[in-house]
Amino acid sequence: CHSECLGNCSQPDDPTKCVACRNFYLDGRCVETCPPPYYHFQDWRCVNFSFCQDLHHKCKNSRRQGCHQYVIHNNKCIPECPSGYTMNSSNLLCTPCLGPCPKVCHLLEGEKTIDSVTSAQELRGCTVINGSLIINIRGGNNLAAELEANLGLIEEISGYLKIRRSYALVSLSFFRKLRLIRGETLEIGNYSFYALDNQNLRQLWDWSKHNLTITQGKLFFHYNPKLCLSEIHKMEEVSGTKGRQERNDIALKTNGDQASCENELLKFSYIRTSFDKILLRWEPYWPPDFRDLLGFMLFYKEAPYQNVTEFDGQDACGSNSWTVVDIDPPLRSNDPKSQNHPGWLMRGLKPWTQYAIFVKTLVTFSDERRTYGAKSDIIYVQTDATNPSVPLDPISVSNSSSQIILKWKPPSDPNGNITHYLVFWERQAEDSELFELDYCLKGLKLPSRTWSPPFESEDSQKHNQSEYEDSAGECCSCPKTDSQILKELEESSFRKTFEDYLHNVVFVPRKT
């Protein structure tokens, strides 16, 4: 048989008469490798580009789960590009990614509803959504962080984005990388972005840091009482949809009607710091009717980097990364020049730590249904340095008659930039024990000054392991946590139920 035959053949030295091919099969003959313009397919066939392209389009058009959109890589027609490569849609070739590779997620039936953290986790790592997304989240724990972890990498949506009755959302900033909504599939009414009845939605994105392009379709905003109209108009300008909307697409009466839409800028007039305090004062603000001013709200939190936005980490279910302080308005003076500047002394802060701070007014709604208010920009203030805590785990070892090696770990709280350490030492008198000992005694162990690591005695271990207080009263049991108490109650309830079950099964009433 021919060298490319495997198993047997019907005619000697003829690659077209093989029972099976050793390498690849091409047009009725066995070959060692697939010549151009053919590609290896499933490690035994040679196919042309049209064959591989037909497989790709067949799966793409069917949208069946589990099928493969075949691509070409290293002269092979394979189910998908290997790690580190992405497909070129024009020629199906796998090309190296520039940075992290995109991950295209194809949605069944063309859309997916995100109504819980669990459903959001199914899209973790996706960068391109081939379909439409509907966000409908009523509640949950730590929602802002969970949504950002699972949806934060999405850069492109081919269909539309719909935010509907998501009472738990305060902001859409968890879509931190969303840059493009194509609108290839539109919501009824030709809408590519749809926001309806979101009672706590206050911000779409921080438009000073976020760009969003909507290729096709219109915007729809109705019944978002805490979303200011200025935020919607800003989205029109940034996304390129200005002029597409009709009169009733953006409701003037049901958007922002319960919001404090600040239209003035508060400026800080005085800032002073110490290692654990920050004193702030800002310019006074009074609405047209000074009785509408209820006070100020001061927001602050630790910020290692200057990239904080107002609604980071917030949701309507209680999660809030900001510390909020309510401040009463100052006494009002008739003389504008003698107006008191409101302020606040922030206490209990960490030394040498940068804080993000902003302040906003708290006002009631005027009778004319106009909203007044003022808010400052987010500023960054760093507390002063102070003395560091003591170095940890000092170790001293003498390696000769004239040297001592000293080692330690950095302090747990540096409280500033540590530039150097101060080492103090003092000579001590020799131990009298060394002169009084009889060095001729056998088995004498000389006193040693070398360091030995501390260890816990058996008594201390027994005390720590004991669940009861000892007789001397030195140790006591740790208080039980809520989960331990709940577990004990469940076990007790189970024992009672099981005992009742045994009584009912074992003891049967005697027939009379």
Rank of each mutant, 00 (worst) to 15 (best):
K103Q: 10
V104S: 09
H106A: 03
E111S: 15
T113R: 03
I114Q: 00
D115N: 07
T118H: 12
T118P: 11
S119A: 02
A120Q: 03
Q121I: 14
E122Q: 06
L123D: 00
R124H: 15
R124S: 10
G125P: 01
G125S: 09
C126M: 01
C126A: 01
N142P: 12
A144V: 13
A144Q: 11
E146G: 14
A149Y: 07
N150A: 07
E155D: 06
G159V: 03
R165T: 15
S166P: 01
S166L: 08
S166Y: 02
A168K: 02
L169I: 12
S171F: 09
S173E: 11
F174D: 00
F175Q: 00
R176I: 07
R176A: 06
R179D: 04
I181T: 01
R182S: 11
G183H: 02
E184I: 09
G189E: 10
N190V: 12
N190S: 10
N190M: 15
Y191P: 05
S192D: 01
F193Y: 04
A195P: 00
A195C: 14
D197S: 02
N198E: 01
N198P: 00
N200L: 10
D206N: 08
D206Q: 07
D206P: 09
W207P: 03
S208W: 06
K209R: 11
K209I: 15
H210I: 06
N211G: 05
L212D: 00
I214C: 06
L219R: 01
L219P: 04
F220N: 06
H222Q: 13
Y223T: 14
Y223W: 09
N224P: 00
C228Y: 02
C228N: 02
C228H: 05
H233T: 13
E237M: 12
E237R: 04
V238I: 13
Q245L: 06
Q245V: 10
E246K: 03
R247M: 10
N248Q: 03
I250L: 08
I250E: 14
A251F: 09
K253L: 11
N255A: 06
G256H: 03
D257I: 05
D257P: 03
A259E: 05
S260D: 09
S260Q: 08
E264R: 12
L266H: 00
L266G: 01
L266P: 00
K267Q: 11
S269T: 07
S269K: 07
Y270V: 13
T273H: 13
S274F: 13
S274Y: 11
S274P: 00
K277W: 15
K277G: 15
I278V: 14
L280G: 00
W286C: 12
P288E: 12
D292N: 11
D292Q: 15
L293A: 07
L294S: 13
G295A: 14
M297A: 04
F299L: 06
Y300W: 08
Y300C: 13
K301P: 00
E302M: 15
P304R: 15
P304L: 14
P304M: 11
P304K: 08
N307V: 10
G313V: 12
D315I: 05
V324R: 13
V325P: 00
D326S: 04
P330R: 09
R332V: 14
R332W: 07
S333T: 10
P336A: 00
S338M: 12
Q339T: 07
P342S: 08
P342E: 06
G343F: 03
G343P: 01
W344G: 15
T353Y: 08
Q354K: 03
Q354M: 00
A356K: 02
F358C: 01
F358D: 02
K360S: 04
A374L: 05
D377R: 11
D377F: 03
D377S: 07
D377Q: 05
I378C: 06
V381P: 05
T383Q: 00
T383H: 00
D384R: 08
V390I: 14
D393T: 11
I395A: 09
S402L: 10
I405T: 06
W408T: 00
W408P: 15
K409W: 14
P410F: 06
P411S: 02
P411N: 01
